[in-house]
Write a protein that binds this DNA or RNA. Structure first.
Lengths: 340, 340
DNA sequence: ACTTGGCACTCGCGAGAGAGGAGTGCCAGC
DNA sequence: GCTGGCACTCCTCTCTCGCGAGTGCCAAGT
């Protein structure tokens, strides 16, 4: 083993020990717990080098070393070995998710499952509207001069909008409008569908046009991608358990979690490695409240296309191999269910 | 002022001081901050009596007194004076809620508003299906032998179910089924509607009956009250702020919040006083994780009928008058919006 | 050139002691 | 029934001090 290799082995050992014990790890305990075949003094030299390079740090002089964000990053990228799920966990995933009824149910069960498997905060993004295509648009008069516009996507999401149309439209008018909207939109991606709707008002006689325009506005509104990105959380109580993992309190983390925009941005912009799992560590999240947290996420979707992401969030000091394995497995399973 | 009256005044002063300072309050500071017109020694006698009756307690000998659950209860029931909202707060409620687009939006804005006003955890229950009536049922074929069943209630809630029907039903069949279902269900409460649907299959010829039954099952499924009770939370980060308010950690509280069943039960079973606001204090919640929290809730709904509840949850040491005022005001405002 | 044992040094942490002070209960007097 | 006085309790804060884990450096060994 070259000295370079050993240095990495030391880093790996430090990360693993620190994650397990939650205490800064020193050279002596390191050689005791891992059979590195060298003396503590040698390890100290390696540690000094690792610290020089910014992979580890000491909380204070004469304390053990703690991995830095950069250290975790190297660990995740090059040092961690995949920890396969236990058969029991695989079974849990299968039995839990197979019983799901509809999309809401799938998402709900998934997020709980992830929280339970990883003992961290779980995050599941609803299938993004931007990647979805229109399956059907329905117009339902509900009386009182109101019309309900229902949009159904191929991913099973259903959006609805109430629209005031003043007068009761005739069934014939409604039927034609329904037919035209569906002809224009079905099978298209949402952004394209919006464009495809533009020509429709001209096909109607002028006195109906105002109503048609109002309805189309509602349809376009539900096609608007940005507004309705949704994410679901579970396992926030796990944050309190790892209370000591955060320098301050968990308050800022909870705040960040409530701002779904922040989470969405993280999930959306995350780069994934070859196995489809992405990791953001500490300050990589570029969010103050999440400076001490890490996010692990993976895309999911039918037919190999990523329609949304799911993952977990926890202290930077988390068990990356296990969490990454769980996220990947769950993402694959959810994808399979959505495909059916 | 009779001695009995003064004792209550002392209790009120203790609660108010303790809520404000977060520290056990002693006889001396009490006479200094409130003009009770008697000496500390007299107050001490009253305190001893109050402690005897279980309204206050000392954390340890030679410390000040702290209200017990029973003390808070008496305070809420008989001693608290309503604190009207500030004009700024009233304006905030109005401007925020008036901009809401649909039911989801109303609920979302409401829960955020409540969390912000009270600086506690806010809880809003979606209009309960059990009190709602059916406004419309729509059947939408979406291809692939699937049918989407959409149920719209008078409270604006929309439930949807996908149902596999195998063959594509003809438009005529669908039209008749739609008409019959709506004729039977519209205007009825959900439980009644379920019963009203029972006779429908007999009206169809035998070869269609299987399909009709499947669709009706889906309709009844979305009419099933228990399954889809939903609540929404906001402001959980406020729990971390009042970290010191909880003996242990906030973990158990977060856990309880995630178990929506628990919250639903609390909201549903809560008794309300004459002004429509209900309070559960500490162990009254009958839930271990919430032993140190209080819940303040109020019903809301259109036309004076309670269709759901909303409220806040925080440490038992909370500002009850202000929180109760906020909950009541928001509940009224939401009711007004739903009525329109 | 790398490794190793030795050694002096640093510094956080926990235990223990002691002063301070807030608050109490009780009692005698008004 | 209220009040001032007084002795007592006991929490809290602070300070000190010793321990020990851990380090960095160095000189010697391989």
């Amino acid at each position: 083993m070259s000295s370079e290799d050993r240095r990495l082995a030391v880093l790996r050992a430090i990360v693993e020990d620190y994650v397990q014990t939650r205490e800064p790890v020193g050279s002596k305990t390191l050689v005791e717990r891992h059979s590195l075949g060298v003396s503590p003094a040698t390890i100290r030299n390696d540690m000094a080098a690792l610290e020089e390079e910014g992979y580890i740090a000491q909380p204070h002089t004469s304390a053990g070393r703690v991995p830095t964000d950069k250290g975790y990053r190297l660990f995740v990228d090059r040092l961690s070995t995949v920890k396969p799920l236990s058969p029991a966990e695989k079974r849990a995933i299968q039995t839990l998710l197979d019983g799901a009824l509809d999309l809401d149910d799938v998402v709900d069960r998934t997020v709980r499952l992830l929280a339970q498997l990883t003992r961290q905060v779980a995050v599941v993004q609803y299938p993004s509207l931007s990647r979805s295509t229109v399956r059907h648009v329905e117009l339902v008069p509900v009386g009182g001069g109101r019309l309900l516009v229902v949009l159904i996507t191929n991913t099973g999401r259903v959006e609805q909008r109430m629209v005031e149309v003043g007068a009761e439209p005739s069934e014939a008018l409604l039927g034609e409008l329904r037919a035209r909207v569906n002809a224009a939109a079905v099978g298209r991606r949402l952004a394209e569908a919006t464009r495809a709707l533009h020509g429709i008002p001209q096909a109607f006689c002028p006195e109906d046009r105002a109503l048609v325009v109002r309805v189309l506005e509602a349809v376009e509104d539900s096609l608007d991608i940005e507004r309705e990105e949704r994410i679901v959380l579970a396992g926030t109580a796990n944050l309190a358990r790892s209370n000591t993992d955060f320098a301050g309190s968990i308050g800022p983390v909870l705040e960040a979690l409530e701002e779904q925009v922040v989470l969405l941005k993280l999930l959306t912009e995350m780069a994934e490695d070859s196995s489809g799992v992405g990791v953001l560590i500490g300050r990589e999240t570029a969010h103050e409240g999440l400076a001490e947290t890490a996010v692990i996420a993976s895309g999911y979707g039918s037919q190999g296309e990523v329609v949304a992401r799911l993952g977990v969030l926890g202290p930077t000091r988390m068990d990356y191999p296990t969490a990454m394995a769980a996220v990947r497995a769950v993402a694959r399973y959810v994808s399979r269910i959505l495909a059916s």
